[in-house]
Simulated assay, not measured.
Amino acid sequence: MKIAYRPLLSGIGFTAIVASLGFTLAQLPVLNKTGPLAVAILLAVLYRHFFGYPEAIRSGIQFSAKKLLRLAIILFGLRLNMNLILDEGLPLLLRDLGVIVFAIGLMVFLARIFNADASLSMLLGIGTGVCGASAIAAVSPILKVKEEDTAISAGLISIVGTIFAIGYTLLRPLLPLDAEAYGMWAGISLHEVAHVALAGAPAGEEGLGMALLSKLGRVFLLVPLSLLLIWFMKNKKNEETENSITFPWFLLGFLAMSLIGSYFIRIPEDVLGHIASLTSFLLTMAMVGLGLSVSLRDLKHKALKPLLLLILTSILLSVLSYWIV
């Protein structure tokens, strides 16, 4: 089959341009608190609203939304240093596991009570419990959710997580916690790695180190969580239909990168920094592709309840994690 390279490259370039614009605008006051991912998703949603979906370059946009998304998740594995997690031991992982179970369980429970969108609520619960937009992107192919839901969830989790991270920095001087305890609290309760870094910085090197370590424990649990979701979806499909669940092989890449970075190759910090920047840019390009599938007209009715439940869950998670630190 002949591949039309011009639409493919044009679509990839389009998502790269919007992602770059998102990174640029994210340097401005106020927007610099939300981060480039949320800004880029908003730009994509607005473009779709005012100009429609660019059908002529759909193949390239879909390549960014799917292929580049998987590549970003694989590269994200290099951030996970398994040695640090294993050295800290079982108590930290048990706290992280409790956070994940609490966040997902509460979001799903509240969604049923208040009749909120089940797909969005599940994704937001996973993003809150594990590692924000990265976790949402990783589990979306397993749960077979709509691209629109993935983009909405990633945008909401980025914005709410940023607000909470800023709130943590304001609370820091008022709390009777030492640097390490505060760092652990931030690491086991905030949504994304960037949010944890933002909130942990005021606690100094010790606090920030503990915050990131606690957060990495939750990232570590992304793989077993994904395997559990695969098992759940297969059982669900067996009950409803014969359609099979495709194994997300990119998660093996995520795990392989984690093992390589932890045990086989010592990657210099400056190189890891460049890889982290590339990962963030690729993930933002992917989210632009997904954001173009969002209908702004339907967003208010579909996302309002899950957003409110996300805020409530995040508050309760902060209180619970403060109590167990």
Rank of each mutant, 00 (worst) to 15 (best):
L316P: 06
F50N: 01
G253T: 04
N81R: 10
K146I: 05
Y322R: 02
L92K: 02
T246K: 11
G187T: 03
D117A: 10
I104T: 11
I136D: 05
T241Q: 10
C131D: 10
R172M: 04
K2D: 13
L225C: 09
L227Y: 14
L252Y: 05
S280D: 10
L292P: 03
R6G: 06
V99N: 10
V139L: 05
G22Y: 02
A133L: 06
G98F: 01
E206F: 00
L310D: 06
Y263S: 14
Y53I: 03
G209W: 04
R112S: 14
L190N: 01
A303V: 09
L229H: 06
E88Q: 07
P29I: 12
G187H: 03
E55Y: 11
V39G: 04
I113R: 15
M82H: 03
S295D: 13
C131K: 00
L278M: 13
L307M: 15
L278R: 06
D96H: 06
L75W: 09
L174N: 07
A4K: 15
F14R: 08
F264S: 13
E205C: 00
S280Y: 05
A56N: 14
A103Y: 04
S134P: 09
K2N: 15
L46N: 09
D96Q: 02
V319H: 01
S293R: 08
I12C: 07
F51P: 06
L177G: 01
G167W: 07
G291F: 14
K305S: 08
P176E: 02
P248H: 00
L92S: 08
G200N: 06
V271N: 00
V223N: 02
K144S: 13
Y182L: 02
M287Q: 10
D117C: 05
A135Q: 06
I74N: 01
W231H: 11
A194W: 02
S10T: 08
S258P: 00
V101A: 15
A165Y: 05
V45M: 15
M233G: 07
L80M: 13
Y47T: 04
L42S: 14
V101M: 14
P91C: 12
F232E: 00
S226K: 08
G127I: 01
D149T: 11
K2I: 13
G125S: 06
P176D: 09
L94Q: 13
R95W: 02
G209A: 07
L252W: 06
A201T: 06
A201E: 01
G217Q: 03
E205W: 04
A16F: 12
L84G: 11
L304D: 05
C131F: 04
V223M: 01
A151G: 04
P141N: 11
L292V: 05
A111I: 09
K66D: 10
F50G: 03
V139R: 04
E192I: 10
G217V: 03
G77W: 15
F50P: 03
K33Q: 14
P7Y: 12
V108P: 05
L259H: 01
A256F: 12
V271E: 03
G161C: 06
I311F: 15
E55Q: 15
W185F: 10
E239C: 07
G60T: 07
N81P: 09
L42D: 00
A165E: 05
T313C: 12
S244Y: 00
I61D: 02
G187D: 00
E242G: 13
A151I: 08
L86K: 09
T150V: 08
L92M: 15
R172C: 03
L92V: 07
S140I: 01
